[in-house]
């Protein structure tokens, strides 16, 4: 375990118009490979925090440190380059495009790279790597050419996870990954997240379902009305006591 957390945010604040969505939030993630559960009711500030870490929004005040040095996260691309992968609640995919193309959106393997955006896609490699990435998350599909719209909700989430796992470097953020999933698919997602730890990858798992988070989280952070109201280690409180904190 290193002494420095992978990610530290200090005094983050965010207003949306007159709404104070994030109030002076200071948190650390990824001291060693850990699963952090981020809990809170709707409007607690979880999504705002995640959007800032994944580069979709910028904080009004405060700063973010990666491995102890101040980092600029001004776009999703910055966040990815720092080693943070985000799995969005709505599975960020273009439904009409193939699985392989979706996995590599924005990070396409190229031939003739010097042509810039006009470089040719390395489609053979895309298909091969995509199928391997899917197998790695135990998703066995016949072809990576299938349009994503033909997949079930769980399979789509599987592709999103495969994408994040393939590019993951340091940290994975999962925003309500078990929403709209069947029981069996939920179990699978929870297994992926637990497995991340053994692969040396930290994760932040956002959910309002305590029963999904409690069994796998090393730590839990509870937010309410834009502020952090509790930080708990595994076993500090029983699941019922945590539930009372949220509401």
């Amino acid at each position: 375990m290193s002494d420095l957390p992978f990610l530290r945010c200090e005094n983050l604040q965010k207003w949306y118009g007159g709404v104070h969505a994030l109030k002076d939030v200071t948190l650390e993630f990824g001291r060693g490979a850990e699963v952090v559960g981020l809990l809170g009711d709707n409007g607690a500030g979880k999504s705002t925090l995640i959007k800032i870490l994944s580069g979709a929004h910028r904080p009004d005040t405060g700063r973010i440190l990666i491995d102890g040095t101040p980092a600029r996260i001004r776009s999703p691309r910055d966040s990815m380059n720092l080693g943070i992968e985000t799995i969005y609640q709505y599975t960020a995919m273009a439904p009409q495009m193939s699985i392989a193309r979706n996995i590599f959106i924005g990070r396409e393997p190229m031939r003739f790279n010097w042509l810039g955006p006009l470089g040719l896609l390395d489609r053979k490699m895309m298909n091969r790597v995509a199928l391997q990435a899917l197998r790695d998350v135990d998703l066995h599909l016949r072809s990576a050419d299938t349009p994503v719209e033909e997949l079930s909700g769980g399979e789509r989430q599987g592709v999103a996870i495969a994408r994040a796992m393939h590019f993951r470097s340091k940290m994975l953020i999962l925003d309500e990954p078990t929403n709209h999933l069947s029981l069996k698919e939920t179990t699978k997602v929870l297994d992926y997240v637990s497995a991340l730890r053994t692969q040396g990858v930290s994760s932040i798992f956002i959910s309002h379902n305590l029963h999904h988070i409690y069994p796998i989280a090393d730590r839990m952070i509870v937010m309410a009305r834009g502020a952090v109201v509790a930080e708990l280690n595994r076993g500090d409180l029983s699941i019922e006591e945590v539930a009372r904190l949220i509401v």
Partner: peptide, 20 residues
């Protein structure tokens, strides 16, 4: 090409494309 992939992604799911 890469830009072609971006054009389809942008038109098919703009939020997803932006997030990626």
């Amino acid at each position: 090409t890469k830009i072609g992939n971006w054009i389809y992604a942008t038109g098919g799911a703009q939020q997803a494309a932006r997030d990626m």
